[in-house]
């Protein structure tokens, strides 16, 4: 796995030093045979991970039931109530069109999480199978795939996303496609390393000797070894994607008006900084907390992995 530790140009939006995390989590030792229960137990012992996990669950709940939870229609304007500070009727105040900030925040959670999910799914679907193929086949297949992924990794994600949006048209799905594409190498690397870890174990050779198909060997015998670190990468990538979505929507390239996202709300807030400084806080805090929570959950998984690996 050291072969692909090439330094990559830090990409804006996903250079929070998280790229190193998966590599550390894989280790080089043998897979722990009964890792799964140990991982769960270890996660449960970390309060920060628990808190982050609960926060994300609540956020998901809010996103799913947004129509029922939001006190107002997030898109209905009331120009008589423009830029009101927080009050009893509008708990977080109103924006420059008199829309309820709390309601927009709740619907924004939907957009943010869904966008993050899209990006992570694209990265997973691209990176995981390709990484397993590269790790399993080795040789020139591995060499070519690794070069392609290294090239992708060196692309600055936001710039690429802006380019793709410029070509395909503005919209959250196009933008997240781009973010997912740039995040795919993380999944690729972790899947490749995990596969190489077990590729030359005797039980893989034994499976071939038994007559298992390559697909069965990959899914049944290799994937279980690759999956735990992949879960960590999913978590970290979701955090990155939330931030990336916010950045793109802030620039007006993501979600389109009048729909709300945390990034577009921040954009609105920044243009009304002088009149309504309080508008910055709700979306800003939510973005901050969501990214932090995803990172904490990822970190918890990583620590749990390291601990179970070292046999503690």
């Amino acid at each position: 796995m050291s072969a692909n530790q090439t330094p990559s140009a830090p990409a804006p939006g996903n250079d929070s030093g998280l790229a190193e995390v998966p590599a550390a989590a894989i280790g080089t030792g043998e897979p722990e045979p009964v890792a799964a229960p140990g991982i769960l137990k270890s996660i449960v012992r970390r309060p920060a991970t628990i808190a982050a996990g609960v926060f994300l669950l609540v956020l998901t709940f809010i996103a799913i039931f947004a129509p029922a939870l939001a006190p107002y229609d997030p898109d209905v304007q009331n120009l008589l109530l423009r830029l009101r500070p927080p009050n009893a009727e509008h708990w977080l105040g109103t924006d420059d069109y008199g829309r309820d900030v709390l309601s927009r925040l709740i619907f924004g959670a939907r957009v943010s999480l869904w966008a993050a999910l899209q990006a992570a799914a694209v990265a997973l679907v691209l990176g995981l199978p390709l990484g397993m193929i590269a790790g399993y086949r080795g040789g020139w297949v591995d060499a070519i795939l690794t070069r392609i992924m290294d090239a992708l990794m060196s692309a600055p994600s936001l710039v690429l996303a802006i380019t793709i949006v410029a070509v395909l048209g503005a919209g959250i799905t196009n933008a997240m496609l781009a973010i997912g594409l740039v995040m795919a190498p993380r999944f690729f690397r972790v899947a490749r390393a995990g596969t190489m870890d077990v590729r030359h174990e005797t039980y893989i050779e034994a499976s071939i000797a038994l007559g298992c198909s390559t697909l069965r060997i990959a899914v049944r015998h290799v994937l279980p070894n690759v999956l735990p670190p992949i879960i960590l990468v999913i978590s970290v990538s979701l955090g990155t994607a939330v931030a990336a979505e916010a950045s793109l929507s802030f620039l007006g390239l993501g979600v389109q008006a009048p729909a709300a996202s945390w990034g577009s709300m921040l954009s609105t807030a920044s243009s009304n900084m002088r009149l309504a400084p309080y508008l910055v806080w709700p979306p800003g805090v939510m973005i901050f907390l969501a990214v932090l929570a995803f990172t904490y959950v990822g970190d918890g998984v990583r620590r749990a992995l390291v601990r179970t690996r070292s046999g503690n």
Binding site: E30, P31, P33, E201, T202, Y203, E205, A206, S207, A209, L210, G211, R220, H221, P224, N225
Partner: peptide, 18 residues
């Protein structure tokens, strides 16, 4: 391969630990 099988040297690693 059903008709020609193999037994390996190291039994600890010839079975999938999971």
């Amino acid at each position: 391969r059903q008709r020609m099988q193999m037994i390996f040297q190291d039994p600890y690693s010839s079975l999938d630990p999971r």
